[in-house]
Amino acid sequence: MWAYVANRIGLAAVVVLIALSVNFAIPRIMPGDPVEQQLAAISAAGGQTGDMAEAAKALRQRFQLDRPIWEQYLGYLWNVARADLGVSVANYPQRVSEIVLSGLPWTVGLLGLSTLISFGLGTLTGALMAWPSAPRALRLLALPLVLVSAIPYFVIGLVLLALLGIVWPILPVAGGYPFGQVMNADLPTALGVLKHGILPALSIVLASLGAWALAMRGMVVSVLGEDYMMLAEAKGLTERRIFLAYGVRNALLPQFTQLALKLGALVSGAILVEVIFAYPGIGYKLYVAIGQKDVFVVQGIVLLLSLSIAAAMLILDLFYPLIDPRVAARSS
C-alpha cells in the first residue's frame, strides 16, 4: 500500500523534473538569440538605441544568460521551486507568476465546472443509451450527439454568442464579470460572474458532451457482455442495482482516466473560447502573450500545464485503487 503510494509519488517527481528540463532546454535550443531579438524589437519600435553590445550584455546579465549552462539550470530549478517564473518581457516589470495567477481562478472555475458538468451529463446519458430497457428515445440521441460533438467548441461558441448575445441579447457577450463591477465576495459579484460564465461554459459543455456519452455507451455495451452481469441478473438483483453497481460502476473506470487528463490539461484554458468571449482566464493570457512574443509568460503557462497534468495523474493514481481494487494489487 505505502510502497504503491511512494512509487507513484516518485514517478510523478521524475515526470515533473523531465518537464522542467524540457521547458528549460527548449528556448536555449531554438534558433535565434532571444536577447538580440528583443533588442531588435525595441529599436524597431523606436526605442532606445545606444551601444547595442553593451545593452545585450546588460540583458544577458539580467537574465543570467552569461553563466555556464549547468549554473543556469540549477538557478532555474531553484527559481521554479520558489515559484519565481521571472518577469514578463512585454509588460516589464510585471512578474510572470502574477500574470499566470490572475488568470488561473477564472480558467479553473470555468473549465473545471463545465468539464465536470459535461462529464456527469454525458456519462449518464451514454450509460442509459446502452442500457437495454432504457427508453427508446434515449438511443436515438446518439446521432445528434455525434453531430454536435463533431462541431468544434469555438464554432458552437460563436453561434451561441450570435444567438444569445446579439440576436436575443439576454446574456453578456464578453468579459468575466460586469464592466466596472468592484470584485467583492457578495451576491451581485457572484451573480455577475455566473452570468458571464454561462455562454463560454455552455459552448464547452455542448462540444464535449457527445464524446463523454459515446465513450460511456461503448464501455457499457462491452460491460453488458460480461459474465458478472448475467450472474447479477440471476441473483435477482433489482435492475437499478445492476445498472449502477455492476454496469455503470465498471464502465466508469476508463471515463475517470479521461476525466483526470482533461482536468489536468484545463489550466491551459480553452484558448479559443476564452478569446471569443474575452474571458480573463489563462487561455486568454496565453493568447495575448504569444501575440506579444512574451517568451517567459508562455514558458510559465506551459510549465504550469505540465505540472498540473502531472498532479492530476498523481491524484488519479492515488485514487484509482479505491475505484478499481485490481490496480493496487497489480502494481505492488
Binding site: 460480461e226 459474465d227 458478472y228 448475467m230 450472474l231 447479477a232 453497481a245 455492476y246 460502476r249 465498471n250 475505484i323 478499481d324 481494487p325 485490481r326
Partner: peptide, 9 residues
C-alpha cells in the same frame, strides 16, 4: 465463467 462471474469492484 468462474473467472469473471463476480463483480471485480
Amino acid at each position: 465463467g468462474a473467472m469473471s462471474a463476480l463483480n471485480p469492484v
